[in-house]
Nucleic acid binder design. Sequence first.
RNA 1: GGAGAAAUGGCAGAGUGGUCGAAUGCGGCAGUCUUGAAAACUGUUGAGGGUCACACCUCCGGGGGUUCGAAUCCCUCUUUCUCCGCCA
Length: 423
Amino acid sequence: MLQVPFIRENKDAVVARLAIRNLDAKPLIEEVLVLDEKRRSIQAELDGVLAESNKISKDIGALYKSGKADEANALKTKTGELKEQSKTLGDLLNETADALTQLLYKIPNVPNEKVPAGNSDADNVETFREGDFPILHENAKPHWELVKDYNIIDFELGNKITGAGFPVYIGKGARLQRALIAYFLDKNTKAGYTEYQLPHLINEASGIGTGQLPDKEGQMYHVTEDNLYLIPTAEVPGTNLFRDTLLNESDLPITITGYTPCFRREAGSYGAHVRGLNRLHQFDKVEIIRVEHPENSYKALDGMVAHIQGILKELELPYRILTLCGGDVTFASALTYDFEVFSTAQEKWLEVSSVSNFETFQANRLKLRFKNSDGKNELAHTLNGSSLALPRILASILENYQTPEGIKVPKVLVPYCGFEMIN
RNA sequence: GGAGAAAUGGCAGAGUGGUCGAAUGCGGCAGUCUUGAAAACUGUUGAGGGUCACACCUCCGGGGGUUCGAAUCCCUCUUUCUCCGCCA
């Protein structure tokens, strides 16, 4: 969430920047300022009452000590009234502060200057493209047919056990998936990221910390019995490692990577674009997460982009990078780049990574701070990105690497797989 | 699941009703010394709100209560530790 002092000092700029998201934030921002003003004036009034009551209590203590019990008892009657007042004011203060917080939860992050205007994913701007589209043989098939031919992924079995969107990986399909995970983790750790194994269930506080809660509750699987949620991405447990944390400046940057399954309800998604591996309720992903000094965060974002480019180049998949427009950039992000690979048999670009700088938006909720060189506590910047999401990478490998004799395994993966061909 | 103990500043750890936002140690920062560093010594150092700056207010795991007054007493929740049971 945005910081109130920041809103107070940059009111017009905040409204103007949020307009890039096609959001008329003016009424929201006005309300924030009114509530903030109200909160502060109630606070001041309450402080005065408490100060007086504290003073009387001290006097009473002193009177008892010097044996003047009568005078002390006389003073006691006075505090009753003050107590009433402070209770009323305290309730009012809480109410106002809660209302302010709820309002702040509704305001998305201020987009970076690089975010282009636009309404939907159609308006995202392609900023880079690399790699040639492979020329496929005549009988080339989409991956959902290939996986049947070679019996490496079974969607029907998943339907039986769980439901749509929970595929079962078999034999070389399972092995290829595991190879990709190992390869991604190796690339990330070689680039300096520390590998973590993270919980796959998170509590409510964690959901609030990274912004899934309270608004996007319906997108996560909720275990009501224990009030826990299945993670939609490793970003949630990974970033929440640093909730309520005060770091030293020298601790920065913090760079972690982790493989986790991801669970998404995807309520409202249906149709051809969810075919096969394109959109699942459970999928695997390797994530990279960084906690950065505000001065370095955009350089770090560029570094993450370059890192992911390196992986896609090694896999020899044609890819492009999009700068997400105001209408598509996620709630908490200030700037997001999406990576898409071209899946040849479907003739479709598939999103395989999303790399974002959240600036202080998450850190403010998380209370993730560091002590800066002036000795002041300052909010850190958080960033994350997929490196990479498995199913769509798998889909594009299967489609792009198919030959009449079978599916070739990309060169870098052969040592991880132990075979060169799926046939 | 049952029984007991505990939760205090960046960390460790004192503190059982007023003089406690809190001893002490470590760590951090500044200085002395040194060519430089280390060591030693000296000083300084919790967080949030509020103010031009002070004042002032809040915070000792979370929530509630007793009291004129709570880190300290009571209730409750959460977490951790020990013992017992169960278990991959």
